[in-house]
Design a protein around this nucleic acid. Sequence first.
DNA 1: TCGGTTTAGAACCAAGTAGTTGAATAGGAG
DNA 2: CTCCTATTCAACTACTTGGTTCTAAACCGA
Lengths: 125, 125
Amino acid sequence: MPTDQLSRTFAALADPTRRAILARLSTGEATVGQLAEPFAMSFAAVSKHLRVLETAGLVTRGRDAQYRPARLDARPLAAASEWIGDYKKFWADSFDTLGSYLDKLQQHNTPSNDSPANDTPEERP
Amino acid sequence: MPTDQLSRTFAALADPTRRAILARLSTGEATVGQLAEPFAMSFAAVSKHLRVLETAGLVTRGRDAQYRPARLDARPLAAASEWIGDYKKFWADSFDTLGSYLDKLQQHNTPSNDSPANDTPEERP
DNA sequence: TCGGTTTAGAACCAAGTAGTTGAATAGGAG
DNA sequence: CTCCTATTCAACTACTTGGTTCTAAACCGA
């Protein structure tokens, strides 16, 4: 709701429907009708969600006859990822202090992983 | 606003004040008064922001005399980072298709800015 | 041209959010 | 006990959000 880009990005992600839409778009363009199909929701509601994603810069819309296909643009996620990344050291090992984390970092230069390949990015309601 | 954890996490991050509070807490515990000091905002408003962060699991509150110090708990950020990480391939090079991204990944195994590891090409979000 | 399909817009509603002010509570200090 | 500090609660305002329904617009096909 605030006007800064990062806030808009996070706000856009703070809804399961919108995350599912992004997941769907990660497999390719889709029309509003195709996007709305899995949801118990009107087209207009999906259209509104798309508008939120659009003003967050996460999707762009095209025009193909009467269709306005939506396309994923993940670039705003880079800034979001970067922001969260600054906190990685705080969840790297929740029993370690920051100090011992930094020690470990110095010893062997492997600061934890964060994902053993999670295939299911989001629920599909 | 929805009740799922990931949505609460993203919603909590979708506000500059709350992100600033988290940044402050990353340097150590702080009381409401200390947290409110940099903002042109009442204590009660900061208290509300803290409540949002608390229900998102991002801060925990203690009790020290009449103070209720807030402490960062970054663990919910891991899930958020993981979710976003699934989209990394889509912003890796916005002019490349996913296919050529995967090609490049295979050729020279160079991660990127944000973090070593977690560039595992998990299959499509 | 007429009709069907796809989408957006407008008006509306219920619920939530971000802030305010002022009173109430909890705990230490005198 | 009484006062002071730190924090929350309650009530209020103003605005946003996620959804609805109904209507209008864009476009294709017959």
